[in-house]
Design a protein around this nucleic acid. Sequence first.
DNA 1: GTAATCCCTATAGCGGCTAGAGGTTCAAGA
DNA 2: TCTTGAACCTCTAGCCGCTATAGGGATTAC
Lengths: 140, 140
Amino acid sequence: MDFSIGELSKATGVKVPTIRYYEKEGLIEAPIRTEGNQRRYQERDLDRLRFLKHCRDLGLPMEAIRELIDLSLHPDQPCSNANRIAADQLQAIRARIAHLKKLEKELARISASCTGEHPAADCNILKAFGDHDLCLSDHK
Amino acid sequence: MDFSIGELSKATGVKVPTIRYYEKEGLIEAPIRTEGNQRRYQERDLDRLRFLKHCRDLGLPMEAIRELIDLSLHPDQPCSNANRIAADQLQAIRARIAHLKKLEKELARISASCTGEHPAADCNILKAFGDHDLCLSDHK
DNA sequence: GTAATCCCTATAGCGGCTAGAGGTTCAAGA
DNA sequence: TCTTGAACCTCTAGCCGCTATAGGGATTAC
């Protein structure tokens, strides 16, 4: 019928202290309590937390999730904000991928520049780490 | 001959409070001071900070940078650690790219699933954020 | 000489948790 | 019914790598 925080944690993969943290942050509602002050959750809390976790797994910042939750609590409002949030996040992810690819290229070059068998004084890796001018691109 | 912290900052692109933070963390040496207690840096501090910044730009964690600095202070030691650090970082970057690509795929699908003109109750984006089962891959 | 700009220390805050201390409640077995 | 032991409670502090602010002192250009 209702879950303890530990059961909710197992069902969602969100750790117990994290659930309490989300509650403190207002991202999930404070559930009812037993006489002994322990939290007891309902089905809808499970849905909400699954939503939250999925959003976090997709990399959304908590502020964006807050907006999405607000929106789902007002089902008559237009969903243009949800659209914007998804598009923004997609763009942010693509920017990060582009940046990481530059780093990958530089690191591959640096990593291959020395076999690790020299004294440090002659190590090309140490030189490459020290000198951005040796880099092929401008990796920020 | 020597630089103030602001000049060092401009020369490297590292912000002033960050330079002081690096000093507190032992990543750069505490420089000499003027009679009025202001820091004055030398050429070698500039080199060190450039090294540090380049490593940070490449995504190395400070602990790894600490090891690299140690190594460059012992030029007779073998550089196998530098090799390992570069290889580890390369692997870490590649793992992050792989993960972000999964997110990109899911977000592109989610983002395209709704034009943003519906009431929230019917919004496919909200549904997709809520339900991982709709996802094509297992993005963590 | 004075005003503008730099510099100093110390502390707190960011995001998103996570770990620990020290104590209470619950549920299963004897 | 009693007892154990696991799970729960609150509160505080810590993680990384900075960044911002407050409240002052030093330096430099005019």
